[in-house]
Design a protein around this nucleic acid. Structure first.
Lengths: 137, 137
DNA sequence: TTAAGTGCAAAATCTTTGCAAATGT
DNA sequence: ACATTTGCAAAGATTTTGCACTTAA
């Protein structure tokens, strides 16, 4: 059984053709993929609505995570280990290239320091970096 | 002449009623305001389309800046000094409350350290913090 | 006076929902 | 067999565009 099928099975999801193809694509891509990108790769095999539903399901189960880009559009990437159904461990750094717009989820250690004003309580931090990616550079 | 009118004049924009009202509202609010919020405050005085166009114009001129929230929706806040027509100095910290969803643009010093992989070049960093704001706490 | 701004209608995107048909287990 | 998933159509939500009318300078 392939890695995609294993992932689905271990999360209690049916191993359908579309889910496997979506996971395989996200697994292969070094950056977060938008729904339109997925759609154009799967256009003859899957309906747009099914792709939306697949992505939502995979996100709910902690298999992929959604990254909102600079423009407010959703992009999806495989979760690193540490995500589960109800908690996304999503403290890595998101790098969006200003040239190709691709978002790379970089698993690098980040240290950040700041003092929130009185009364503010932090739960989670998300860091976005804009710049030029290794492919465009 | 009021502060809003002065801002418009100094950026070479006509001082229209709607623009003044939008700036006054953003100026008053301690957090970033969404288009729907503005719309409900101005519904009898301005068309939805005009609000969109006003916000875009003000953003282009460096008067307000747009913050994309967790859900990918746009919210707008007055720019701190340091923004100009072509460059938004937007390195402050964005705090979004998980309870009321309001986004506070906090002008506090932030120190962040990380090493990007070879070939990645940073231009700008954006930090988003999720948690509980001072009003909900 | 006249270039810019506004309102209305309509379109373009992106995303979700309802329901019947198809599919995985 | 049966609950889940899929496809299609339709609706929602957000944002943009076209064009005639209005307004600030």
């Amino acid at each position: 059984m392939g890695r995609s099928a294993e992932i689905l099975q271990s999360h209690g999801l049916k191993k359908t053709g579309i889910r496997i193809k979506v996971i395989e694509m996200l697994d292969k891509m070094p950056y977060a993929v938008s729904q339109p990108e997925l759609e154009s790769h799967l256009s003859d095999e899957a309906d747009r609505v099914t792709i939306y539903r697949t992505l939502n399901t995979l996100e709910e189960k902690g298999i992929v995570h959604k990254v909102i880009d600079r423009e407010g559009l959703s992009r999806f990437a495989m979760c690193s280990s540490g995500c589960s159904e109800h908690k996304h461990h999503d403290e890595h750094l998101h790098f969006q290239c200003t040239r190709c717009s691709n978002i790379y989820c970089l698993s690098i250690p980040v240290e950040a320091q700041f003092n929130l004003p009185q009364g503010f309580e932090i739960h989670q931090m998300r860091i976005y970096v804009d710049g030029i990616c290794k492919t465009c550079n």
